[in-house]
Design a protein around this nucleic acid. Sequence first.
RNA 1: GCCGGGGUGGCGGAAUUGGUAGACGCAAGGGACUUAAAAUCCCUCGGUUACUAAAGUGACCGUGCCGGUUCGAUUCCGGCCCUCGGCACCA
Length: 884
Amino acid sequence: MSTKPEAIDGRYDFKTLEAKWRPLWEKLGLYQTGNDPNKPKKYILDFFPYPSGEGLSVGHCRNYVPTDVISRYYRSRGFNVMHPMGWDAFGLPTENAAIKLKAKPAELTAKFTANYKRQMSLIAASYDWSREINSSTPEYYRWTQWIFLQLYHSWYDQRKNRARPIAELEKELAATGTKNISLPSGVQALTPQEWQALSIKQKKDFLSNFRLAYRAASAVNWDPVEKTVLANEEVVDGRGWRSGALVERKVLQQWFFRITAYADRLEKDLDTIDWPESIKAMQRNWIGRSEGAEVDFKTEAGNLRVFTTRPDTLWGATFMVLSPEHPFVAQLTTSAQRAQVEQYVAAAKAQSEIARAAEEREKTGVFTGSYAINPVNDEKIPIWIADYVLMGYGTGAIMAVPAHDERDFAFARKFNLPIRVVIQPKEQKLLVDEMTEAWPHDGVMINSGHFDGTPADEAVNKVTAWLEQTGKGVRRVNYKMRDWLISRQRYWGTPIPIVHTDTLGEVPVATEQLPVVLPDVPNYEPTDTGESPLALIDEFVNITLPDGTQGRRETDTMGTFACSSWYFLRFASPRTDKVAFENDQVNYWLPVDLYVGGAEHAVMHLLYARFWTKALHDLGYVPFVEPFTVLRNQGMLLSYDNQKMSKSRGNVITPDAVAEAQGVDALRAYILFLGPFDAESKWEETGIKGVSRFLNRYWVVAQEFASVKFVEPSDERERAFKRIMHATIKRVTHDIENFQFNTAIAALMEFMNFFYECRREQEVVGVSQAMWREGLEAFTRLLAPICPFIAEEVWQEVLGHKGGSVHQQTWLSYDESALAVDEITIVVQVNGKLRDNLTVSINAGEDSIKQLALASEKVQKFIAGKAVKKVIVVPKKLVNVVVG
RNA sequence: GCCGGGGUGGCGGAAUUGGUAGACGCAAGGGACUUAAAAUCCCUCGGUUACUAAAGUGACCGUGCCGGUUCGAUUCCGGCCCUCGGCACCA
């Protein structure tokens, strides 16, 4: 049987082509990462997927096809291209599926990834599979554990604004104590002697206040369905982002990464990267930087510190509000108020902060019975407790300025607390009795002592400077972002490499002892106890340290976002078992030149990966501070019914089905042709017909090439043919580089339409065989990255290039002189309205064009009887006659 | 409420720096081929309207709305409206 496909009813047999070329390309190793030292590099990366049992839909192709086209393009432009793929294989969905199927997660993962890989090969995604990685293998997670330990052994030195080894902090504590160190709130200052006097365990506890990876008791988000805690980033509207369950508040010992230490740099460096504005905005919003001041108010329990972004409204503070969790609550509560306060605090405790914020609007609160002294005017103001003040932000206490803050206003009105205007707007005079809402906007300071009359634009700065001078307050920046909670009480994740002991406190596992292997066990269902199922496996938990100390292993695992925070580094040297990544490889390949994936990871993966990169940079492991130079988000692909594709709706379109019906080349071309890369689009069955027709037309032209007759050659026709050929090269090149794949395909369609214009039954008119061939070759090479199969078939079988694959050819460059034309069309307008066209020589001077335009009958008609005021001539484009 | 995108034919969308709005494709209508259908090929295709026997030739309107800048605005500026996405008691 011949492998040469036959045209069937003018349609080409895509299946035979695909079966023919796929194995040959594999043999050629076309997709191997380049390593020519003389070439520049491109690292083109897709978000590595979470393999699930559902497999890939055409929606995933919206991600993988464009990056594949770009990878193929840059290979042919002479770059060393690394385009790898791997699996974010740990995590809840696989584990939940495994529990349901009574299988082992590792076995399911193998099954799922094999299917993904098959589908990716089906659509001809040009991944270098020799670099495939899987985050759930010990070869990989060993190094996730290693990075965890690097963070554990580090602290953030605010003075140098970078992370440093914790050993350097210990040295400093021994020498000078905490004298020069900025202490987190609630941490006691120490002299060198006091430090020395601490036990090993106490020292460790103290250092936990500084480490980039630390364990602390904290009120956390507990997902009762997934039976694990979640990071703040994983809670959306008070619900777990995957399970949809309302999260509960639990106080548990948990592991955190101190991402807040990097808040400032994470925000500032956004300015240096080429990312979608929306993602940057989401990260800025999540980081939530606010500038303001901290001010102390005297109370019975000591100085009550508050944070405010409006120090200019200090004179308008008429009461204070503490968060229910504030440490002063007990002391400030008078016996008369005690019962009421305790009841309120208990109720608040039951809800997580996020759920509390998401659900409540109506203000609630209770009076403590105590008062504070406002340091700017020595006024005595009542102290209340309310859950609209969050312990996790600022100091957990606020001064309430009801006249100029909506929340305080609502609270004051509800509990009948006084309101005082201290900012007078220009537009109106605020009268307390008539106010229905706060005035949080601009104005002039009043009722504020010697600051009266200070205008809005100066007020905050002037007051802050005065607070600092008089020692009443300090300038301060706060962030909404909290530390990243990494513990999960689940089996299918990277074990946290820590051992707990009674005498030595927590002991990190030594690097050479890694990995801490996840035990292969038959039962791993999550528990309701707040403890990981690993805690039930004695062989895993109990350990004797080298010095004989008895210990218990940490049984929490890391959330999967730890795995994905460094995988892009691993691809540079995926097989080494000596290090997490080889420096020379990382220095060559990183940062990632193009990173493509969905927008849903804006404040999760994309934030975490930036944080790890910065930390690794500070510790000297990588030379760059941003992992992804260019980020692009593909638009969502909706199904034919305008809904998201999902199994439950039964509207998922698989690449398998499309490949079966229309072929992979048509699938790829249609994915790109649908619309702009980053716009939401809809899959339409009729739409793919257009690109199918286009490929068939190309096939027809190619197939008849050997037999067709070339008649009536003309210079003019040939020049026109050559012109559109070079124009197409120019357009396709520009469009691929700029992610405008839809117009790249439109350009190719126009070129093919021109082929058809030259064509008659078994004849090509006006163009020589040599020129026709040149055009067909150019078309084939431009189409190759988009439709690799049909292009290869035409290249080798029709055009007879036996030397190698079309995918190994150097990209075409266009000839500017071929684009030149002798005659051009000049548009003639009268008062900006189109009235005529002129065809003139390209060399026609401005004057002669002007004369021609004025002489035009159609123009004359419109200027008759009017004065010509001005004539504007735009060279090579238009003439506009202005009449009055 | 705040932040970030978008609003262009029946539909998806084009329009490198302000310069012929609607490329390319889908759908639709007409025609050719065919016993027929599919496929294929050719033509028409923003709206209103005038002239003409007709092929055709014009005019006016038109890129969410109102206004501005300009010889000229889908493009720039100001003010609105609608819509999608994100955040939302963060002091």
